[in-house]
Design a protein around this nucleic acid. Structure first.
Lengths: 117, 117
DNA sequence: CTTGAAATTGACGACTTCGTCATATACCAT
DNA sequence: ATGGTATATGACGAAGTCGTCAATTTCAAG
């Protein structure tokens, strides 16, 4: 059934998933998170676990919660980052919120665009 | 007013706050989190920062998010994480993110609909 | 002042992560 | 085969955390 029980295993998987989702390679993430690409490789291969500061930088770069990376919650969702995406979500109220929710749901459930697009 | 920008400083403060809020001493928290009380002391005094596993155990014991302990959010609990709106935003890939960004910007800057709708 | 609990601080060896660097593998093009 | 890119892996010293333990300080109660 569900294979990943170990938090370390969860972490490496979710780190790679979040990175792939953004279309970044290990160098891209490394640049944004401020660490060498070899560090990313070590994390995703499971040979290392991030320290206090490194975990924070990874979560910031990927705009996910540390709780998600650590496997404490199953949803990557992050609120109140510097991203205007989250900032604008906070401004919505009432009916616009429903419109936004349906739109985002449609987007997230849609078939991911292929290379050719 | 509130001027703790260093994540290390935020962490030690929030760790102690969360512990005091529950009426626990360092030994109490240590037992529940599975570590010696001296470790708690080192954390709250700022002489050490928790590792990957230790951070998880602290958050579990105190029932707060790691994002709160790390100072990435200001709410101790899982506040906005449950909102499907934020949830779906986290699933978006690079290109869809831009689409969503523009859409939300348009929504938030639009003339707000009247109450009666 | 004295007692005792709570917290701080420092040192020790063991273990881990850190960045840097080199090498190796995998895969997809040409 | 040849190249190019992405990823994996291992070694190195420096730096940090780990649990254990001891010594010290703080502070409220008696």
């Amino acid at each position: 059934m569900n294979k990943k029980r170990d938090p370390s295993e969860i972490f490496r998987g979710r780190l790679k998933d979040a990175r792939d989702l953004r279309g970044w390679n290990q160098s891209d993430l490394g640049k944004i998170a401020g660490m060498p690409p070899s560090s990313i490789a070590h994390f995703e291969s499971g040979s290392r676990k991030p320290s206090f500061d490194t975990l924070r930088r990874l979560a910031n770069a990927l705009e996910v919660t540390t709780d998600y990376l650590l496997g404490r919650v199953d949803e990557p969702g992050l609120a109140e980052a510097g991203d205007p995406l989250y900032r604008d979500v906070g401004k919505l109220s009432g009916r616009d919120r429903e419109i936004a929710r349906d739109f985002l749901k449609m987007l997230s459930e849609r078939q991911p665009p292929k290379e050719g697009d």
